[in-house]
Design a protein around this nucleic acid. Structure first.
Lengths: 353, 353
DNA sequence: ACCCCGGTATGAAACGTTTTAATTGATTAT
DNA sequence: ATAATCAATTAAAACGTTTCATACCGGGGT
């Protein structure tokens, strides 16, 4: 490929001058600059970013380590990351951990067992090595459960941002965490159910020890309290995020002597199960019972009835993660301000409530 | 960061020897090799891939230019690309064109108007420049409609593979095209409808001039012929791939004096519209009428009734695209064999037929 | 005439690798 | 003992950039 030498020769100047024109550094006379630009055009010159990075020790590459690109949230977050990086003149290097393809992978793994397996850590280490061999100047870890990858990094002092998930030991980690606000989202959902006139509102949670389940449960309670509604213990159930568990728990819930008139389900997949179960029992949604989800899957809009749900600020999470990691990279890995950034969710009213 | 010099000093050898150990090139005595490996470990040495690429002129980076990461197919294809590249020891550089975010973007653009707009071409050129500045040794273009990006590349002789879409002028292009088999997939769908006992089978196509519509229509005809079923012109309709158009056309179709008993709809989104429209008219699916889709969206499994459909070999398209572009890169851009590789679709039987 | 100055332009070193050709030291053949 | 062979190691050049220190040049002040 054309190099800076070719351009220099073609323009009749030194390579130093060409470099100065490209980076408009030092003073180059207007005429010379024009000649150089002409040559660059003529020869289709594209600077070699590797050589530049080698010399300057600044690559402007952000590494993205993601657990599973096929997660419904990943594409939107990556889209946000790409956009922000492009804006700021950074490159993106993606590495997919392919967690989903692992034999020991289990969707229900809220406890992060997987993350503790030596095998998984080897994968992460491998992926990090790949990323670091490109001399990334910042890392975004895009996962679902709390993780700690900084321990797997060589002691490098490159900034790490967790997106969509959290650092496992947030207190001890200097990493930034960027996600959506479970607490606020759940409140939003429940308040909307209340405003639709319900007072007997059940909740179906995800795995009991997960952070998300915990936070959303808090949001539910806060919303009820704010409207001075009672909290019925028998209305509080926990599933495992799957369609099947929603289906099963709905059965229990609506065989109670005094069943609720609405359910806040902590994700759309379980909500589908709930609604199908209700249909099976001859209970109509929303006429007899309202159901509210969380996640806003594409499927939710086409479900029957279309599911009222909470949509996550995925694009913004990506943008913010990239913006933050870039800022940290440029400021010597110093994060300014809070280590937890929670972006609010939006409410998507549809027919199921 | 640690360099090869640090390792050499720590191990008491020359940098050449370290390099030889890393790439196990020349003969290095077992003892020396062990000492070097120890040093690499002690110092957490990770080779600088940019320096290596600079020297060897081989980067082992595959560039992926994608129109829209948020397309339902993209994550699966990228997953396949990543897996194959990892297997072959290649890096992946992703660039997202963000086509969907453009003001002039239009989902219905089968004619590729967008691709002809100077503005779009500027974006592509910009993205290619970014990719080429990393000295990628192969390019995968991941789009939906026929495109021609090779004209936008400087005359470089790097291999280009179109995945999921085709080169606009396949004859004149030396690029490889890898996608799924529309023709076979459509046949699969229609034959399954026929085997379920239907003889009056309508079809709702996508935009009339699109390649996919054309090929799937052929598949439909072939299947009918194979079973010696008549082709009713009034059963052949075309929409624009949207939910709404499916909804509308179903209305027309089932107000015919002699309506069909089954419909093959060319994508799942339109099929949703069709089914909802039928429900509205009090026609039951599948009891009164069967509906068959194409694409296998996640939503289709949860639709009511769950949609029988055709699933696309997305992961394989990615794998194959990466595998091919790598092979070409290693063989001086010479593709071996056919320039069109169509991977068969699979049938996903569910309750709607 | 001389010196100095400011504005431009450039030569050369350096970044972290690979690779070729050369060097070393030991062993074998004469 | 000397020459030839061989295996193991290394010095140094090169890849395409940036950048620092230096060089050039024409003009204004002495």
């Amino acid at each position: 490929m054309t190099t800076i030498h070719d351009v220099a020769k073609h323009a009749g100047v030194s390579i130093a001058t060409v470099s100065n024109v490209i980076n408009n550094n030092a003073k180059v006379s207007a005429g010379t600059a024009e000649r150089v630009r002409q040559a660059i055009n003529d020869l289709n010159y594209i600077p070699n970013i590797a050589a530049k990075g080698l010399k300057t020790n600044v690559t402007r590459i952000i590494g993205v380590l993601m657990e599973d690109i096929r997660n419904f949230a990943s594409p939107y977050i990556i889209d946000g990351i790409c956009q922000q990086c492009e804006n700021d003149g950074y490159h993106v290097n993606v590495d997919n951990l392919q967690v989903n393809r692992r034999a020991d992978y289990n969707v229900d793994d809220t406890y992060g067992q997987l993350a503790k397996s030596g095998d998984f850590q080897t994968s992460v280490r491998e992926a990090l090595k790949t990323l670091l061999s490109a001399r990334i100047c910042g890392l975004i870890y895009l996962g679902t459960h709390p993780r700690d990858v900084s321990g797997l990094l060589p002691p490098l002092n490159i900034p790490v941002v967790y997106a969509y998930c959290y650092a496992e030991k947030p207190a001890s980690s200097k990493a930034l965490n960027i996600s959506y606000d479970d607490y606020q989202g759940a409140q939003l959902a429940v308040k909307n159910i209340i405003r639709a006139g319900h007072t007997k509102i059940a909740i179906i949670g995800g795995l009991i020890n997960s952070y998300a389940t915990h936070r959303r449960m808090m949001g539910y309670q806060t919303a009820l309290m704010e409207y001075a509604l009672p909290l019925y213990p028998e209305y509080i159930l926990s599933g495992n995020w799957s369609y099947e568990s929603g289906h099963e728990l709905a059965g229990k819930l609506f065989n109670l002597p005094n069943p609720p008139t609405a359910v806040f389900v902590m994700n759309d997949l379980m909500a589908f199960g709930v609604i199908d179960s209700l249909k099976g029992m001859g209970i109509r949604v929303p006429d007899d019972v309202s159901v509210h989800g969380f996640d806003d899957l594409l499927a939710s809009r086409y479900f029957s009835p279309p599911l009222s749900t909470i949509s996550l600020p995925l694009h913004e999470i990506g943008e913010k993660a990239a913006g933050s990691v870039i800022k940290m990279a440029e400021n010597g890995n110093e994060a300014s301000g809070d280590k937890f950034i929670l972006i609010p969710c939006r409410h998507v009213p549809r027919a199921s409530v």
